[in-house]
Design a protein around this nucleic acid. Sequence first.
DNA 1: TATGAATGAGAGTTCATTCAT
DNA 2: AATGAATGAACTCTCATTCAT
Lengths: 199, 199, 199, 199
Amino acid sequence: MARIKQTDRQQILDQTRRRLLEAAADEFARAGFSDANINTISIAAGFSKGTIYNYFPSKRALLLALVDEIALQHIAFIQEQVLLESDPLLRLERFYQAGFDFVTASLPRARILFNLINGSDEKFKAYVFIAYQPMFNFVANEILARGVEQGQFRLVEPAPTAMLLMTIYLGTASQRNDEGQAWLDPAQVSALVLHGLQK
Amino acid sequence: MARIKQTDRQQILDQTRRRLLEAAADEFARAGFSDANINTISIAAGFSKGTIYNYFPSKRALLLALVDEIALQHIAFIQEQVLLESDPLLRLERFYQAGFDFVTASLPRARILFNLINGSDEKFKAYVFIAYQPMFNFVANEILARGVEQGQFRLVEPAPTAMLLMTIYLGTASQRNDEGQAWLDPAQVSALVLHGLQK
Amino acid sequence: MARIKQTDRQQILDQTRRRLLEAAADEFARAGFSDANINTISIAAGFSKGTIYNYFPSKRALLLALVDEIALQHIAFIQEQVLLESDPLLRLERFYQAGFDFVTASLPRARILFNLINGSDEKFKAYVFIAYQPMFNFVANEILARGVEQGQFRLVEPAPTAMLLMTIYLGTASQRNDEGQAWLDPAQVSALVLHGLQK
Amino acid sequence: MARIKQTDRQQILDQTRRRLLEAAADEFARAGFSDANINTISIAAGFSKGTIYNYFPSKRALLLALVDEIALQHIAFIQEQVLLESDPLLRLERFYQAGFDFVTASLPRARILFNLINGSDEKFKAYVFIAYQPMFNFVANEILARGVEQGQFRLVEPAPTAMLLMTIYLGTASQRNDEGQAWLDPAQVSALVLHGLQK
DNA sequence: TATGAATGAGAGTTCATTCAT
DNA sequence: AATGAATGAACTCTCATTCAT
């Protein structure tokens, strides 16, 4: 009995936390960190202002928790897609395709990410890079290093090149019109990158 | 006599405006629009709070005035550099080189630009794009269209491709370490882009 | 239980609102709208500055809420007193007596009213007239029209004459010395008005 | 020669002062003391901000100088009109007629007066009453005392009754519609007052 | 005499955060 | 666990006043 109750309680806690994070994502995407409003978030989540502070110690911590979540989802989604292919060239194409798909599907969350990376708060920026470290490593090892080994890519240094690919991804995928459609086509971007990487 | 006085006064006005814009550039770069502090700006410029409002009607107007100034300098600098070459391929290289140089030389101003473009305030974003329209046109006409005409580039559509080049430029040039050094090399970026554009 | 809590909370809300309005009445009476200080009001009410904005969206809205309250009290008090008599002549006397009594008892609130009516903000003025419409109607119908019907008053038009009586009331009752005593005697005023209305 | 120059200079000074006072009258009438804007006044007068402070030591002093001027004009106009008649009854009618005429002709200045009298600044109020002392005396002596002596008025005390007449005048004459037309007719008001004063 | 750039105290308002319930 | 009334520091913006020219 007690254990069941315990479980129920945990579920309620998780669900509240989830709703708060969802609402926070929308608000942070809409307004950025400084202009995001804690009250707006709590109301959108269906709770009152105080509840947020039962789950997150501060507005800043709320955003960081959201970054963690976004990074996990983002990395998992891209890895999953990329690993469907084994050829490094196809993996690269998949990488851009999956990246654009992720941004399309999760535009508010992606916007938060881009805002933070190109924003002026260095602490946020550093936090994001740490959270995305697995993705950098994945691109470097599973796409670039393999392509170089197999002789499909020029002899590039995996680490800085991974950064280049990521930067191009973020820069191109983030440009959207009012309906959320990308200005650029991922195939166009990966074609361009592939030309650059091939011998 | 009267004319001299008039001139003096105008010079003082211009100089004050200049110092305010310089200080504003630093502060907006450091903190972004919302967290930038009017008081900090005026103190840094050597004036008191109220003086800003003798020159700009609001914090927002101050930033927009700065955007105008940055865009003019930015566009002029890049055009000047690019036009030193006549070959479209070399022009493209110059474009990235000049772009990276501009960011290096005017990092705070470039940061403001990137923040606005990737930020959440749609009005700021629209304003920036209008201010940079001449640059888009320049890239489309003086680099891409010429390269296509002369058979050096694939048959790309100048307008969206100009946007792609700009996006890649902004995305790559803006990534800097703490000392302001670019993570990426402009030659690397233009090589990649060139590979993508060539037949 | 829950209902009691609910009630308690509502009582606290009402009480805070009440204290804010009381303090606001004193401050607006002392200084007029423009020179009234939000901080002074909240401190006098025993709260901090921000609390006012949990109850009223702006300084202006605070004053308008106060006007609503004053008008309701004012009208109710005068109607109650006037309706103690049925003879229109006696009603007129009661009207001035009650009016002067109201001003004596609620001098700060009355001052706010007079300030607004004779002030330069047309929006405030219009708001006050709308709030006092019931009083104009009451004087026109329950005093003047009846007196004319019963042949005690000259054949005057009720509406503009009601305005005249109100104007004389406001003009005379508002003149007070430092101790809040009226310069004029309401009996004197109503005698004068009665002479003017009788055949 | 020197004396002529001196005269010219004095004329310029007087004219500037005059234009400043005219502009100040409009602005104080429009907005009341607190919301009146020194810059608006100086621009309307065709001068710059600083000039006001060459003529008046402060915004407050500017208003007081204006009050002096208004009172002098006001009193002179009413005395002149009233003294055209010798019969106290006709003088009383003239008093209200002239009063309403003055307000009609000098609405901004009259508004300033009414605002101050019914406003919340006690110092302004006291200043106005001192400036209008000659008018109170004039009404008491030249209208009321004479009417009582000649047996046309009831045996009223001149001083408080003068105050009553003035208060009624100010209260009634100040109510104007958007085109500046009085809500009430001065004949109506003086008829009412006369009924009250006659035996 | 007239100017207007500079000042800076002070205003209303916002909002992340606290905490008693 | 959830609430929301209260807080008060911080913010942008206003404007009467000063003073060097």
